[in-house]
C-alpha cells in the first residue's frame, strides 16, 4: 500500500501521519513537497496532514488549496483514489472544494487540545469498514478553527445523503451540544464526499495509533484502510 503525505510550509502533523502509516502500519509512505506537480506513481491513499499551512493566512487552508500538488490530489480523488484530510488537512479539502462546508473559529475562540469521543456514523467507508456503525472511539483534537459550518440547505443535503462520517459524542455515545468542543453544526467532526473516497475530520486518528505513545483509539481507521487495500 502506497501512501503520499503532501507537506506544505507550516504543516506539522506530516510526521505523525508518516509515523502512523509507515512505522505503525508498515505501509510505503512518502512525504511529497507541495511544489511537486504529481503524486508518486501508484499512490493509493493521500493523507493531507494537519498544521498551519502558510500560517493560516487569508483563511485556514485557502492558500494550500492552490498549491501545485493539490491539482494532482484532485485528479487522484476524481479517479476514485482515497484522500484523508486531518485537521488543517480537512480545512484544505474544504477550501479545495473536495468537501462541502467550512471550518470557522471555535465558538469559545480558544485553541482546544484534548481527547474527544467520536461516534461512527458511516461504517461502510474505506476509512471505517473495520468499525461498527454507532461505535465510539477516542482521539485527540488540537485546533482553533474546527467549528464546522455550512448553509442550512446544504446541511440538510449533507445529512440526507449520509455525508457525516463522525460526530462528537459522550464516552457512552450520546450526542448533544455538551459534547461538541468547538460549536460544529450538528456535532459534525468528520465529513465524507458523495462518492465516499474523500474524508475530512478535525480530530487526529494518526496521533492515537502507537501504544508506546498512549491510547490507540485511532487504529480502527487505519485497520479499515488496511482491509480496504490488503483485504481482511
Amino acid at each position: 500500500m502506497r501512501v503520499a503525505v503532501p507537506v506544505f510550509p507550516g504543516s506539522n502533523c506530516d510526521h505523525d501521519a508518516i509515523h502512523a502509516c509507515g512505522t505503525v502500519m508498515g505501509w510505503d509512505t512518502v512525504p511529497v513537497w507541495h511544489q511537486e506537480p504529481r503524486l508518486p506513481e501508484g499512490t493509493e491513499l493521500v493523507i493531507v496532514p494537519g498544521g498551519f499551512s502558510y500560517g493560516d493566512y487569508l483563511r485556514c487552508g485557502a492558500i494550500a488549496a492552490l498549491a501545485p500538488i493539490m491539482a494532482d490530489v484532485k485528479r487522484h480523488a476524481d479517479n476514485g483514489g482515497l484522500v484523508l484530510g486531518i485537521c488543517n488537512g480537512f480545512q484544505i479539502l474544504c477550501e479545495a472544494q473536495l468537501l462541502p462546508g467550512a471550518l470557522l473559529r471555535n465558538e469559545s475562540l480558544r485553541f482546544i487540545h484534548k481527547d474527544v469521543h467520536l461516534r461512527v456514523e458511516r461504517a461502510d467507508l474505506p476509512f471505517t469498514r473495520a468499525m461498527k456503525a454507532g461505535a465510539v472511539f477516542q482521539v485527540p483534537i488540537a485546533h482553533a478553527e474546527g467549528n464546522f459550518t455550512i448553509d442550512p440547505a446544504d446541511l440538510a443535503d449533507l445529512e440526507a445523503r449520509g455525508g457525516v462520517a463522525f460526530r462528537y459524542c459522550s464516552p457512552a455515545g450520546e450526542l448533544g451540544e455538551a459534547h461538541v468542543p468547538n460549536g460544529a453544526m450538528n456535532g459534525i467532526a468528520g465529513v465524507v464526499n458523495l462518492r465516499g473516497n474523500v474524508l475530512g475530520m478535525m480530530p487526529h486518528p494518526e496521533r492515537a495509533v502507537d501504544p508506546k505513545l498512549g491510547p490507540t483509539g485511532g487504529l480502527g481507521m487505519f485497520k479499515s484502510l488496511a482491509e480496504t487495500f490488503v483485504g481482511a
Partner: peptide, 8 residues
C-alpha cells in the same frame, strides 16, 4: 477564485 469563501 481566492479572496472569499462563499460558504461563510
Amino acid at each position: 477564485k481566492l479572496l472569499v469563501n462563499p460558504v461563510m
